[in-house]
Every structure is written in C-alpha cells, then in structure tokens.
Amino acid sequence: MSQAPIELKGSNFTLSVVHLHHPEPEMVRKALQDKIDQAPAFLKNAPVVLNVSALESDVNWPQLQQAIASTGLYIVGVSGCKDDDLKRRIGQEGLPLLSEGKPQKKQNKAPAQEIKSIGVAPESAKTRLVNTPVRSGQQIYAKNSDLIVTSSVSAGAELIADGNIHIYGMMRGRALAGASGDRQCQIFCSNLSAELISIAGEYWIMDQIPADFFGKASRLCLQDGAMTIQKLF
C-alpha cells in the first residue's frame, strides 16, 4: 500500500512569547528592536507569539501588528485575548488565537515570601538530561534548569536552557544558556565547534570563537558583561 500524501502528528515547539504591556505601536517597536539588537542571532527573524492579556480593547491592532512585524519577527499567533472585539480584529488580520494552557494554581503565601526573581532557576528544579544525539533542526529547552547532553549536537540543532549547559559530545549546533537572563550561567563543552554560543543574550558566532579553543574542551562564562572562554581541562 502506498504511503498517504500527508500525516498529522502532535509535536512540541518552543516559541518566544512577547507580552505586550503598552498599546503604542512605536514604543513597542523600539523596545523590541532594542531586544533584537542585544541578541540578533537568537531573535532575528524569530517566530513569536504575542500575549495581549494586558491590552485594552481600543488598541489599534493593525498598526501594532505592523510595528512588530517591521522588526523582522514572525508573528505566528496571539494568546491571552479576552475581549471579543479584539479577537475579531485579530482574526481579520489572519492570525490564529492560541491558548497557553491552564495557569498553575498559586499557593497562598505571606506577602514577605512573594519574591519574584528573573533568570534564577528554583533549587528544586531537576536537570534535564539528554542521552541521544541532537539532530539538525531539533530544539531542546530546559526550563528553569540546567541541560546536560551526553551525546553529540549536530549543526542546525539548538540547545536552550534557563540554567547552565553541559555538552559531553561534539558540539556543532547552537547553545543558549541563561535564556531567562541569568548572567551567572555557564556553558561547558568537551569539543567546542559551535555555530553560536550565547549566555543571557551575549553571544559569539563560530568565527568569534578563538582558534586555540575551537574543537577543544572549553568553558564559557560572562566576566564584566563580556563572553570569556577558558580551557576545561
């Protein structure tokens, strides 16, 4: 029997979500462009979801959408929309309305305990361990935890972690540690041949990796806000 021309399967993808807190298109455009300029290799032409839960119904949606698209970001959907009129206008622009899932129930805490931190993984978070090769086109994200890959990472593959990243095989893809902004994170590679290395938005592309460290066991971290590299062994 010949194979069917198409097949539908469920899958998971990691997408950046832009939470919009202001309705002014130019202000949003400038803020996004500043973020992209900080990490162009990570954000340039990236697919994103827009969360509009903080916007009022009278927002000029076509202008806002155009301002965001002018930065080069690809809007693949909109989440958090509760206003029926805004939903209608978003639909007229051809964008799907997405659900980010049910929020977790908040535990009751005393006010003094309600401390929010950005980029610091909870101590109880488990490390994500990957024992298989990471192929080209694959993306692995370790949310609020470190990421350990015991095998090789092919060119075109991407590792993202809110914590540290450890790669024990050949590293040819992209590794982005401290994705939530934790500048204390580090990257450890047994064989560094990466397309891109990034920590909290600071990054090197392949040509910027010092020749003495290329293909060698290396450790990368931030010192005084700049990417630095050391021999691992």
Rank of each mutant, 00 (worst) to 15 (best):
Q3E: 10
Q3F: 12
P5D: 09
L8R: 10
K9M: 08
G10C: 09
F13Y: 10
L15D: 01
L15Q: 05
S16G: 04
H19Q: 15
L20F: 07
H22L: 15
P23Y: 14
E24S: 14
P25G: 02
M27G: 11
M27I: 11
D34E: 02
D34F: 01
K35I: 00
A39G: 12
P40S: 14
A41I: 03
N45A: 10
A46N: 04
A46H: 07
V48P: 07
V49G: 06
D58Q: 13
D58W: 15
D58M: 14
V59L: 02
N60E: 12
P62A: 09
Q63R: 04
A67C: 09
A69I: 11
A69D: 04
S70G: 08
S70Q: 11
G72N: 12
I75N: 08
S79W: 03
G80K: 12
C81K: 00
C81E: 14
D84N: 13
D85H: 06
I90R: 05
I90G: 09
G94R: 03
L95A: 11
L95Q: 02
L98Y: 08
E100H: 07
E100M: 13
K102S: 14
Q104C: 01
K105F: 02
K105Q: 12
K106Q: 14
Q107H: 07
N108I: 10
N108E: 06
P111G: 00
E114I: 13
E114P: 00
I115L: 11
I118Y: 05
I118T: 01
I118P: 00
G119L: 13
V120S: 14
V120T: 15
A121R: 09
P122G: 12
S124F: 10
A125S: 15
K126P: 04
R128A: 08
N131M: 15
N131S: 13
P133H: 11
P133L: 10
V134F: 09
R135H: 08
R135S: 06
Q139V: 10
I140S: 04
Y141A: 08
K143H: 14
N144Q: 13
S145K: 13
D146H: 15
L147W: 05
S151T: 04
S151K: 12
V153P: 04
A155E: 14
G156F: 05
I160V: 15
I160A: 02
I165F: 06
G169A: 05
M170F: 08
M170S: 06
M171N: 08
G173D: 06
L176W: 04
L176M: 13
L176A: 03
A177C: 03
G178V: 04
G178M: 06
A179Y: 11
S180Y: 05
G181K: 10
G181N: 03
C185I: 05
C185M: 06
Q186F: 08
C189Q: 01
S190E: 01
S190T: 01
S193E: 04
E195H: 00
I197H: 01
I197P: 00
I197N: 01
I199T: 02
I199Y: 03
A200N: 11
A200I: 09
W204Y: 05
I205G: 08
I205D: 14
M206G: 06
D207H: 02
P210T: 10
G215H: 05
G215R: 07
K216A: 08
A217T: 03
S218L: 02
L220K: 02
L220H: 07
C221Q: 11
Q223P: 00
Q223W: 03
Q223I: 13
G225Q: 11
G225R: 09
M227G: 01
M227K: 06
T228K: 04
T228A: 02
Q230V: 03
